[in-house]
Design a protein around this nucleic acid. Structure first.
Lengths: 160, 160
DNA sequence: ATGCAATTGCAACGGGGTTGCAGCTGCTCA
DNA sequence: TGAGCAGCTGCAACCCCGTTGCAATTGCAT
């Protein structure tokens, strides 16, 4: 099943509002979901599902990873949440209206840059002109070498 | 451990030559490796490790997946082999001097395009100019929407 | 309050790949 | 030619990231 994260973004100013968005769609505002949404609002940066599950243990019953995944998936279907694949590790989740849309990941040092959507407009233009594709660097990053690694690589670097 | 597949490509005209490249580095040309290299030479397109292991059962002892992975890794370190991540499935391996260097993957329909390295020169230029990065679409593809999906998406598509 | 479908929590599973280790085997050197 | 010994193999167990099945629970509309 392809077609992921192409849902329009939904912005929620706060936890109550986000839960309201669920109820409006006939979904239930359960305590597990409240905790998850609170954790997402509390997170400064995109976080992994295990991190979210770990952070959720403010509730007595241990936060279940499977439920976290299910709920993240549902929140993403709704448009409240978005995730990115930043390398080989687990995906990073964040409230949809918070993510700085575009990512670059360095293949050599692993560094991840987050850029405002406008920053790569020229790149998207070039892709459109030369291939007809509509490039998106939100769900999967643009991969390459960051300036530092590109430099050390151009000079005959001696790593390894 | 980042830093993958940045080794310079090594071309081997045939199986004997490839095995020679191993010996030249103090590595052993074992029968398992011979079978693997033969399978790679026989493959018309990039193949997965499980496919390689399955194809290797010309030898009496069943080809071991773990050994296949270890040997692919080693061949890649040497520069004889390269792999690409074409979506969510397993990685695709091929002889380094055979891969059509650049890939585009459609997030909506899953389609994968392979383009000659020159095709994305302008894109790499745009990336370099606007970010200072050296983009590479060989190991991880450029992700976005293919022309068809971009069109149906622009029109208010009703999928889902 | 009551009913009942939506959810949870737990455990088991699945794909993709890595690792530990005992035993086998290319390769080098006498 | 064959002995010695790293370098490998094959097997099984394991790890990570998620997903799924299912019985028990719980929102929430009535």
């Amino acid at each position: 099943m392809p077609a992921a994260s192409l849902t329009p973004t939904v912005a929620a100013p706060d936890v109550e509002n986000a839960l309201g968005a669920l109820r409006a769609r006939g979904l239930r505002a359960t305590s597990a979901r409240r905790l998850l949404v609170e954790a997402l609002f509390a997170a400064a940066e995109p976080v992994t599902a295990p991190e979210l599950a770990a952070g959720l243990d403010g509730g007595v019953p241990g936060a279940d990873l499977a439920a976290v995944y299910r709920n993240l998936q549902m929140l993403e279907r709704i448009g409240l949440v978005r995730h990115t694949h930043a390398g080989h590790g687990p995906a990073l989740y964040a409230l949809a209206d918070r993510v700085a849309s575009e990512f670059l990941r360095c293949e050599a040092c692993g560094d991840l840059w987050a850029l405002p959507p406008s920053a790569l407009a020229l790149v998207r233009d070039a892709v459109r002109r030369t291939t007809g594709w509509e490039a998106r660097f939100t769900h999967f990053p643009l991969v390459g070498l960051c300036p530092a690694c590109a430099a050390s690589h151009a000079a005959g670097d001696t790593r390894r």
